[in-house]
Design a protein around this nucleic acid. Structure first.
Length: 586
RNA sequence: CGGGAUGUGGCGCAGCUUGGUAGCGCACCUCGCUUGGGACGAGGGGGCCGCACGUUCAAAUCGUGUCAUCCCGACCA
C-alpha cells in the first residue's frame, strides 16, 4: 500500500471527547471515527486490526474443535420470552418493533437463538458434545457508554456456546476453552489473568473472566489476587479471610444512649470511643423497587452484586436519604441515615416501605459480634451492648455480601491479597440447563430418555481486545502494535522522494516485502521526514525502514517500534528481518 | 436515570459579558522554497454558528424550548 493512497487522516491533536488512551490514540491516528454515542466507524486501518484479531480467534476456536456459524442480529421477542429474559434483561436490551408491530430486539448476546437452533438439530446424544461460535456485531444500550471502544454500545464479539450430556463433559469443554482463550490473548500480545467472577445477567454457576491487567484508568474492574497461590477474583466475586479484629464491644449492659450528631461510623466511633468493628452498620438498598436492609460490620463495605444475588433481582442501588426518611416515617420512626437499625428500642422492626415488605440480609461478619453498637431508628441515639437473641434477631438471610479489601487474607492460602485494575476482554461460563430447561431444548440419551443440554458459553470482546492492546502497548508518540495484530507489518520511509537512489532502494524493498507476503506500506508522500516519522509512530507500524543519506554508504535505518531499537543495516538485511519476523507469527 | 458541563468548517479553539463584516491554529488546494523528528512565504477553497420558536430594524451573541455530546455515580464483551 502506498501511504499517499492509504485512507487515513492523522490529527495533530487528540479529539476533545476522548478520555482514555486507547480512544485518544485510535481517533488521532485515524483508526476510528465516532458516529454517535458509543457507536464507531471502523476505518480501514481499524478494520485490518479487527480482522486480524478475529482470525486469531477463528484459528484457535477451530483448532479447539468449535464450528463457526452466523446468527441474525435481529431477534424476535418470542424466544426471549421462552427463556424468561424479555422481562429480566432490562434497559440494556435494544427493543424495536417492525411494521406489523411485532416486537424484536437487537442481539446483545445469543443464548436464545443458539438454543433454538440446537434443539432443532442436536436430537441425539451421538451428536454431543458440540461447540458453535460466531463473530458478529452486538448491541447493548449501555446506560453510559464511555472509554471509546472499551465500552461501546455496538461492538464486535465472538460468542461460543457448547452443548454436552453431562457436567463432566461441560467441565472438559470449559477447560478446553480456557486453554484456547489463553492462546488467543497471548497471540494478540496481551497478558491476561483468569479470575473468578459473578455470572450476572447471563446466569450460571461457575465463571471466569480474562482480564488484561492495566495500570491505566481504563481498567474498570478491581481484581484481587494472591502472590502466594493462584487465587484471583473480580471484586464482585472475591472472598477473603479477615485478619483478627475486636468484635466484642465490652459494654457492661445493653442500653440506648444519646449519641448526638453521629451521622457517620467515624463520628460514632469517636463519640463512643470504640473501634468500627463493634458497630452493626445498617444500609438501605432498593432492589427492583423493593427495600432491602443490609447488615454488616461497621468497618466493612457491602459488595452490591453479592447483595443483589443474595436477594435475587436485576437492579440494585442504595436508597436516597429522602427514601429512607419516607420509609422511617411510614413505620412510625423518626430517624435519618446514621441512626438506622433493623429494629427500634422495643424490638419493633421496619415492616414495610410502600407496597413492599422490607427484607433483611446480614453479612457473615455480623454473626460473631457481641455487645455491639446498633442504630434504633431514633435520631441522636444508639443501642450499645446489644446482642443477637436478646435485643434483636439474626435475619433469615445470612451470607457473604462483603466487599473484599486489599490486605485481607487469601481464602486459599492465607497470604495478604493484592488489588489491581483490569480490562475484561473475555469470559467463560458454565450455564448448565439455565436456557435448555425453560426452552425445552433436549436430546435423546442412550437410555432412551429425553434430557436438556448441559450448556456453556464463552465470549470475547473483539473490539475491546484491540483497544486493550493499545492500552497495553503505547508511548507518548503513539501506538506500538504487537506484530500479530498490527494493521501493517512495516513502513518504508524514503527521507526524500525526489532522491532517485533513495526511491529506487525503497521501491525495491517494498516489492520484495510484498512478494514475500509482508504487509508493507511505502511512504511515498512528498513530505518532510519529521511528518512521516510522526505518522509512523502514531499509527504504530511495528517496523520502520528509513532510507536516507546513509544509503550512499549502502545502509538503511531499521527501527523496532516496540523496543525503540535502531540499527544501521543493509537493505537486504532489513527486508530479511521483517520477513522472518512475520513468518514467526503463529 | 440522578448530578455537572459543552455545542461555532475535518480536528482543536476564540468571538457571546456590551446584538450590526464569522475569526484563529492545524488539516485541504496552487505556486515557490525546504527534506533525519509535525519548516517557511504567497495565494486559495470550505461554515443553515446543534435545531425550533420568540424579542429586535438587526441574533453566533438576548429569552424559552428541544436535541445531541462529554464528565462524575449503579452494569457488562
Amino acid at each position: 500500500m502506498k501511504m499517499s493512497k492509504l485512507f487515513v487522516q492523522t490529527l495533530r491533536e487528540f479529539p476533545s471527547d476522548a478520555e482514555v488512551i486507547s480512544h485518544k490514540m485510535l481517533a488521532r491516528a485515524g483508526y476510528i471515527r465516532k458516529l454517535t454515542s458509543g457507536v464507531y466507524n471502523f476505518l480501514p486501518l481499524m478494520w485490518r486490526v479487527l480482522k486480524k484479531v478475529e482470525n486469531i480467534i477463528r484459528d484457535e476456536m477451530d483448532s479447539a474443535g468449535a464450528q463457526e456459524l452466523l446468527m441474525p442480529f435481529v431477534q424476535p421477542k418470542e424466544l426471549w420470552e421462552e427463556s424468561g429474559r424479555w422481562g429480566a434483561y432490562g434497559g440494556e436490551l435494544m427493543r424495536l418493533k417492525d411494521r406489523h408491530g411485532r416486537e424484536m430486539c437487537l442481539g446483545p448476546t445469543h443464548e436464545e437463538i443458539i438454543t433454538a437452533i440446537a434443539r432443532d438439530v442436536l436430537k441425539s446424544y451421538k451428536q454431543l458434545p458440540t461447540n458453535l461460535y460466531q463473530i458478529q456485531s452486538k448491541f447493548r444500550d449501555e446506560r453510559r457508554p464511555r472509554f471509546g471502544l472499551l465500552r461501546g454500545r455496538e461492538f464486535i464479539m465472538k460468542d461460543a456456546y457448547s452443548f454436552a450430556t453431562s457436567q463432566e463433559d461441560l467441565e472438559k469443554e470449559y477447560q478446553n476453552m480456557w486453554q484456547a482463550y489463553t492462546n488467543i490473548f497471548k497471540r494478540c500480545g496481551l497478558d491476561t489473568k483468569a479470575v473468578q467472577s459473578d455470572s450476572g445477567a447471563i446466569g450460571g454457576s461457575v465463571s471466569h473472566e480474562f482480564m488484561v491487567i492495566t495500570d491505566t484508568d481504563a481498567g474498570e474492574n478491581d481484581v484481587f489476587y494472591c502472590d502466594g497461590c493462584d487465587y484471583a477474583a473480580n471484586s464482585n466475586h472475591a472472598v477473603s479471610k479477615l485478619p483478627q479484629a475486636v468484635v466484642d464491644g465490652g459494654f457492661a449492659k445493653s442500653e440506648v444512649v444519646d449519641t448526638p450528631a453521629t451521622h457517620s461510623i467515624e463520628e460514632l466511633c469517636a463519640f463512643l470511643n470504640v473501634p468500627a468493628s463493634v458497630i452493626l452498620k445498617t444500609l438501605v438498598y432498593i432492589v427492583d423497587k423493593k427495600p432491602v436492609l443490609a447488615l454488616i460490620r461497621g468497618d466493612k463495605a457491602v459488595e452490591e452484586t453479592k447483595l443483589l444475588n443474595a436477594v435475587g433481582g436485576n437492579e440494585i442501588r442504595i436508597a436516597t436519604s429522602g427514601e429512607i426518611e419516607e420509609m422511617m416515617a411510614e413505620n412510625g420512626f423518626n430517624a435519618i441515615p446514621g441512626f438506622i437499625g433493623p429494629v427500634d428500642e422495643n424490638k419493633k422492626p421496619i415492616a414495610k416501605y410502600g407496597e413492599y415488605k422490607v427484607s433483611v440480609v446480614a453479612d457473615e461478619t455480623v454473626k460473631e459480634l457481641k455487645n455491639f453498637v446498633v442504630g434504633v431508628n431514633k435520631n441522636d441515639a444508639h443501642r450499645v451492648g446489644a446482642n443477637f437473641g436478646t435485643d434483636l434477631d439474626l435475619p433469615e438471610i445470612i451470607t457473604d455480601i462483603r466487599l473484599v479489601e486489599a490486605g485481607e487474607l487469601c481464602p486459599q492460602c492465607g497470604q495478604p491479597l493484592k488489588v489491581t485494575r483490569g480490562i475484561e476482554v473475555g469470559n467463560i461460563f458454565q450455564l448448565g440447563t439455565k436456557y435448555s430447561q425453560p426452552m425445552n431444548a433436549v436430546y435423546l440419551d442412550s437410555d432412551g430418555k429425553t434430557k436438556p443440554y448441559i450448556m456453556g458459553c464463552y465470549g470475547i470482546g473483539v473490539t475491546r481486545t484491540a483497544a486493550a492492546a493499545v492500552e497495553a502497548h503505547h508511548d507518548e508518540w503513539g501506538i506500538k502494535w504487537p506484530l500479530a495484530i498490527a494493521p501493517y507489518h512495516v513502513v518504508i520511509v524514503p527521507v526524500s522522494v525526489k532522491d532517485e537512489l533513495q526511491m529506487s532502494v525503497a521501491n525495491k524493498m517494498y516489492e520484495e516485502l510484498l512478494a514475500n507476503g509482508v504487509e508493507a506500506v511505502l511512504d511515498d508522500r512528498d513530505e518532510r521526514p519529521g511528518v512521516k516519522f510522526k505518522d509512523a509512530d502514531l499509527i504504530g507500524f511495528p517496523y520502520r525502514i528509513t532510507v536516507g543519506k546513509t544509503i550512499t554508504e549502502g545502509n538503511v535505518e531499521f527501527v523496532t517500534r516496540q523496543t525503540g531499537e535502531k540499527e544501521a543495516i543493509k537493505p537486504e538485511e532489513a527486508v530479511k528481518n521483517v520477513i522472518e519476523a512475520v513468518k514467526s507469527i503463529k
